[in-house]
Design a protein around this nucleic acid. Structure first.
Lengths: 221, 221
DNA sequence: ATTATTTATTAGGAATGCCTAATTTTCTAT
DNA sequence: ATAGAAAATTAGGCATTCCTAATAAATAAT
C-alpha cells in the first residue's frame, strides 16, 4: 500500500461524497494533479487489487474494502489536523499540508492514542467530520442550503439536493460545482433569488435553486 | 529528497559516529537491509548530488551538506520518539518503528513546535542525544567504559577510546563492533579482567581493554 | 445522423530504487 | 609474492509511477 495508492483512495472517497455516480478519470486526475493517462493506469491496478470497480470509459467507484481503507486515511488526516491545531497551535491554513504527509504513517495504535489524547474529536479544525474506526462518517455538520445563507457569507459548494439533469447542468455552466467557493452578495427581497459571486462572475439563482444547492462554511481535507 | 535518501544519510550519520574512516558499502548495506550492489548504485547518486564523497572500493563519508541533512533527520526521529513516549505513552520498544516513519515528514516548523511542546529535550527515550537545529550532537550521555559496568549489565558497544589497530582488530575478531550487544558476566577480582558474552560466546577482556571500550545502556535510533 | 469536441485509453518511455549474477579490486594468509 | 577469500562494482532486469503522443469511445452540436 503505497502513498500513491493512499492518495487515489482518499480523493475517490472525497469525490464520492458528492457524486453517487462513478468518479470520472479526469476529475480524479485533477484532484491528484496528474495526467488522465496516469490515472487510467493506476485505476487498473486498484481494480486488480479489489480496491475499486473501474469500468472502461464509464467511471470508478470504491469497493467496500477500498472505502474502508480510504476512510482510515481520512480519519488519520483529520485526527492529525486536530493535533496540529490543538497541541501545536497551527492555523487552519497550515494543518492541511502537514496532515497530508502524516496521514500516510500507518499505525492504528498511534492514531487511537492520538484520538484519545485529543478527547475523541468528531470534527477537524475545518469543521469536517472525522470518520470513526468503523469507517462511518458522522452526519456532515455545517452543511446548509444556499437559501439559508445571508449576504456576506463565503461558502463552499458541497452538492445538490436534486438529481435533475437540467438543474445540475445549469450549475455546471456557471461553474457551481462541489468544492468551489461562492460569495453570497444579496438576496432579492421580492422573490428571494440569491445573487452570488463565483470566481469573479456574478450569477443569480432562483429561490428554488438556492434551496437545492448544499453549501458549507468549511473546507474539505 | 526521497525516504530512501533519508535512510541512507541517517545510517551513514550513525555509522560515522564510531568510524572516523569512510563507511564501507557492506556495513551500510547491512544497516539498510539491502544488497551491496543497490547501495553502490545509490551512493553514486548521493555523490552526484553532493551529499556524500564516495571513493570506489574505499568507502564513503558525508559531505557537510549531507551531514546537516542527516542530523536533521535524526533530530526529527528522536523528537518524535520523545513525543510518542511522553504524550502517547508508548514504551521504548515501540517508539522506534513509528518514529522511523514520522522522521520523513519534512517541516522544520512542525519539529520546532513539537520540540517546544516537549520542553526542548536533549535526549530521546533511549537516552540518545538529540541533534540541535545547528546539527550538533550534544555530548553523548549514558556512555561509559566497559570497566565501569557491573556483572549482570547488558550494554551496547559504542566505540573505542583508542585508535590502536591491534586493539580494534582484536575487538573485531571477537565480534565486538559498534552496535553489538554485550552481557557483562563477571569481573575477575585479581586483575579486573571482564568476562563478557557476545552472541553466545564468552570472551575475556583485560582491564586495559575494558577501560578503552565504550558502551552504553541505550539503543541507537 | 453525422461531425466535432471532449474524455478516456493504449503505446512507448523515463527516473527510482531494488534485485541477482558476473566481474573487478582489495585484503589476508601462507 | 601470490593464491584464495572477501568486498565492491558493473551489467542486466523488474516493479512503481509518472510522462507525452496517438488512438478510441462517448457526448454534444448542427
Amino acid at each position: 500500500m503505497s502513498e500513491s495508492t493512499d492518495n487515489y483512495l482518499k480523493h475517490l472517497f472525497a469525490l464520492s461524497q458528492h457524486n453517487q455516480a462513478g468518479i470520472s478519470t479526469s476529475a480524479l486526475a485533477q484532484k491528484l494533479d496528474t495526467r488522465a493517462a496516469s490515472v487510467t493506469g493506476m485505476l487498473k491496478k486498484l481494480h486488480r487489487d479489489g480496491l475499486v470497480l473501474h469500468t472502461r470509459y464509464k467511471g470508478t467507484v470504491l469497493t467496500a474494502r477500498g472505502r474502508r481503507i480510504a476512510a482510515a486515511i481520512v480519519r488519520r488526516h483529520r485526527i492529525w489536523e486536530c493535533f496540529l491545531a490543538d497541541y501545536l497551535g497551527f492555523g487552519w491554513d497550515k494543518v492541511h499540508d502537514m496532515a497530508e504527509k502524516l496521514e500516510h504513517v500507518q499505525s492504528e495504535e498511534l492514531i487511537d492514542r492520538l484520538d484519545q489524547l485529543l478527547g475523541f474529536p468528531t470534527v477537524d479544525p475545518h469543521g469536517d467530520p472525522i470518520p470513526g474506526k468503523d469507517g462511518k462518517l458522522p452526519a456532515a455538520s455545517g452543511q446548509l442550503a444556499l437559501s439559508e445563507t445571508r449576504p456576506g457569507d463565503r461558502v463552499i459548494i458541497r452538492g445538490a439536493r436534486s438529481e435533475s439533469p437540467d438543474f445540475l447542468q445549469h450549475l455546471s455552466s456557471i461553474g457551481a460545482t462541489p468544492g468551489v467557493a461562492l460569495w453570497v452578495k444579496q438576496v432579492l427581497p421580492f422573490d428571494r433569488s440569491v445573487v452570488v459571486r463565483i470566481k469573479n462572475n456574478l450569477h443569480t439563482l432562483s429561490a428554488v435553486a438556492a434551496a437545492a444547492l448544499v453549501v458549507s462554511k468549511n473546507r474539505m481535507p
